[in-house]
């Protein structure tokens, strides 16, 4: 489902944020990506949803070579990939409902179907009563779950989550993890970038450790 071959990534002028990363994640896998701050976790995820192009090397997602993809095709790749951004990227001038609905609007869904589906997923997140609030009036943890809902609402083939439990207490963290696992069981490939040791240890899933842009450990390979 996800393949990287000898990927180098350097932001203009800076040293390499990723170097010589080769990686294979199969369909239906559940993977943790960890490493100290600045190790390149977010950079790696950005390559996977086409927000960045690798400086060198190949990135192949669901059989599509992202590095060779014409920009007009990029939206169609992104529809297969649900992303929880480290900074959420919620729109403050829209309601919670509209924020989550965006993913489905883009796909051309009708209003009724959208409302039903969004309500359903917000209920899963325990946030159905916040449907009409604006994201600015939610707590950090609530915002994070809205961001998660937006990523999951169309049941994408791939789910990329950048620090999805950063702001959460014990209980909500478990909840988020179980939601991601559920999505995984339903067939989505899940990649989670996180510092959260406890999250990783409690899950017994594949773990990839990055350090200064290199993969230094991959529990699958050892």
């Amino acid at each position: 489902m996800i393949q990287l071959h000898n990927v180098y990534m350097s932001y203009q002028g800076d040293g390499a944020a990723l170097s010589n990363v080769t990686l294979k994640i199969a369909k239906g896998e559940f993977v943790f990506l960890t490493g100290v701050s600045g190790a390149g976790k977010s950079t790696l995820l950005k390559l996977l949803y086409g927000a960045l192009q690798p400086t060198r090397g190949q990135v192949v997602i669901d059989g599509v070579n992202v590095s060779k993809l014409p920009s007009s095709q990029l939206p169609f790749l992104r529809r297969k990939v649900g992303v929880v951004f480290q900074d959420f990227k919620l729109l403050s001038n829209r309601s919670v409902l509209e924020n989550v609905a965006l993913t489905l609007e883009v796909l051309g869904w009708g209003k009724k179907d959208i409302n039903k589906r969004v309500y359903h997923i917000l209920k899963q997140m325990g946030l159905e009563h916040k449907l009409n609030s604006t994201p600015l009036r939610l707590s950090g943890g609530e915002q994070q779950r809205i961001a998660l809902a937006r990523a999951l609402v169309n049941e994408p083939k791939i789910i990329l989550a950048d620090e999805p439990t950063g702001n959460l207490d014990e209980e909500s963290r478990e909840k988020v993890l179980s939601i991601l696992k559920e999505a995984n069981i339903r067939g989505s490939t899940v990649v989670i970038a996180t510092h959260d040791r406890r999250l990783i240890e409690s899950s017994h899933k594949r773990l990839i450790v990055l350090d200064k842009g290199h993969i230094v450990e991959d529990s699958d390979e050892s």
Binding site: Y49, L74, P75, R78, K89, N93, L102, T103, V106
Partner: peptide, 18 residues
């Protein structure tokens, strides 16, 4: 003032036209 919105639309898979 709404460039975040433009960016996000792109990230969730909206085409340029959309």
């Amino acid at each position: 003032a709404r460039k975040d919105e433009l960016e996000l639309m792109g990230l969730v898979g909206a085409t340029r036209l959309f």
